[in-house]
Design a binder for these strands. Structure first.
Lengths: 342, 342
DNA sequence: TTGTAAGCGTTATCAC
DNA sequence: GTGATAACGCTTACAA
């Protein structure tokens, strides 16, 4: 039905030159005269030529495609990181293919294989919460496929990574609450399998220590960091009868759950309980009161990850020394933690 | 550095058979004996063979890749639609490549070309707000590349599409407000270039008419449907001195902006002004009061779009008759529009 | 500056 | 059932 697609051979034929000349002209090869370049380009346009990147990729052994795996794109944080990656990649004429693992290990492996089979030139990944084995990533490195980790990383594979300083972030959040006069600060965190939560927790502990606030194990709640988990943790906390005057949640969603429960119980925020979340998801500025949170600079994170990626890709060395970029977080103070007169 | 990748030729050589047999065995061709299939599969595994989809795609003329273009992935609505598309696509062994147009026409065209050059087997797209020319899409159809539109569609190109019944949605939202006793219902909408906003507006008008409520042009505000625009529109509305007892915003974000301004002016929601948004973005259930909104069943929309897509792809007919799937929206009633005693 | 020819890894077609 | 061969559309030595 549709006329056959134009190839460089069609252009060559029309112009009475060879396909290689056409190829070189289209690729702006310096050894081709400006005159032929122009005629080729014109003919290409008039025949509505669309290069077959597949063929080029096959021939060159590289696809100009880079794969990104994230737990979900349905988070402002991740979609912003992706935008950051795309910015640099597109500038360098690379396309970005995004896949979601949905926090599922099998899915993560399947999606990884699919990307490899699609011959991406490398992969950037934020590891799922439940992924405990990293063999599939280790294999990539051994096969010489560039790999960069971001945000949800692990030290079990030796490759470049980008994170924010989650320790400092946890410290800042806790310190802020302390400076607001809070003395009994609860913390909602994940089972410490994932680096980021472990670090935020360490920051929390360190701040307590530095300000001589006794650590209470009963104030540390563990959950899966979704809204519902935040609700559960907060209900438990209240039911436990344990006194608390602040909650630092390592996730905005869990913080939102906490806010809901506190409001349902008519506990005033921030007067009775101050609240701090994590990630600066857009909705945090819409809540009532607006939620204090930590900005992770996702776009910058994406850019940094892409930079490390292209460093590996363009490296001629056999052995690549893994780099680690650490971004500095920023506390966004809003009404949920601002006590009057402070 | 890494040992050369294994190809079907390597497997063939080891097994003293030909590459074609290997290819057939791997593709589970019925004319290959079970015995050879097994030995080939075993050898493939032990050599850690990874098929080169690029080469297969080049030879077969199809890539098993489908492209999706959305204005932004940073919206729960769009990322859910994408998930819906992926569900069906992955089941059929297709990969989904997502690109963002960022509501920019040039970007939309560039990204479209990039996908075509990457040899996707077809494209699903939600058109950017500012796109007024559709030549680049028309061209696709003429070239026989399957194209499906979803949500942000246009009737200017003759191809399959999936939408929700925005007219009914607009009607339902307005009717709901009327039944709550509202008589002066403002409407925040987009300059009616985009189908969806036009339809929601039509629904608004129709409901007013059916309930004999006089239409007031001054109650219709136009903006770009972001939070800031919602704020602006609401400020204007208040400044105009025009009386109003409800706002129906055709976007959750603009509704959020309206809510902020109303609260800043100490206007009680819903007692003095009832508020309804559109899209059921997750944050709408977090606001105070929670926002009444319209659910668009994004996952179902994605699935429906993928279904129409594969219908076109698998059609052997020269001329494909465009299908249109219309999903039924659902009003999610929350406190922002629920008057006491109703 | 341009042409020739080989090859990237598959699969389709035709043999046997 | 399996083998031989060509071809998908492009790039790139090597030649000229």
């Amino acid at each position: 039905m549709n006329s056959k697609k134009t190839t460089i051979h069609d252009i060559a034929e029309k112009l009475n030159i060879t396909a290689s000349t056409v190829s070189r002209a289209l690729n702006n090869n310096p050894r081709i005269s400006e005159a032929t370049k122009k005629t080729v380009l014109d003919m290409a346009r008039s025949l509505n030529y669309q290069p077959n990147n597949l063929a080029a990729a096959l021939r060159k052994g590289k696809s100009q495609l880079i794969g990104v795996i994230v737990p979900t794109i349905n988070r402002a944080f991740f979609s912003s990181v992706i935008r950051g990656i795309e910015e640099l990649a597109n500038k360098l004429d690379y396309r970005v293919v995004v896949s979601q693992s949905n926090e599922d290990v099998d899915n993560e492996i399947a999606t990884l294989n699919a990307l490899i089979n699609a011959r991406v030139d490398g992969i950037l990944v934020s590891i799922g919460k439940n992924t405990k084995q990293f063999g599939h990533y280790q294999e990539l490195i051994e096969r010489g496929i560039p790999l960069v980790l971001f945000d949800r990383t692990t030290n079990e594979i030796s490759t470049s990574q980008v994170v924010i300083d989650d320790f400092v972030a946890g410290y800042m959040a806790t310190e802020h609450l302390i400076k607001q006069g809070c003395k009994k600060i609860a913390h909602i965190t994940n089972y410490h399998k994932v680096n980021i939560y472990k670090e935020r927790y360490r920051g929390y502990l360190e701040a307590l220590k530095d300000y001589n606030i006794p650590f209470e194990k009963s104030l540390v709640l563990e959950g899966n960091m979704q809204l519902e988990d935040g609700r559960e943790c907060t209900k438990q906390l209240i039911a436990s009868g344990e006194e608390f005057d602040a909650i630092f949640s390592a996730s905005d969603y869990a913080a939102m759950g906490a806010m809901q429960v506190l409001k349902e119980k008519n506990i005033k925020i921030p007067e009775e309980v101050a609240l701090v979340g994590f990630s600066n998801e857009p909705f945090t500025s819409f809540t009532d009161p607006p939620l204090t949170t930590v900005d992770q600079f996702p776009i910058e994170m994406g850019q940094a990850a892409a930079e490390l990626f292209f460093e590996i890709l363009n490296s001629t060395k056999k052995k690549i020394i893994p780099q680690k970029t650490v971004l500095h977080p920023e506390l966004i103070v809003r009404a949920s933690s601002l006590k009057k007169g402070k």
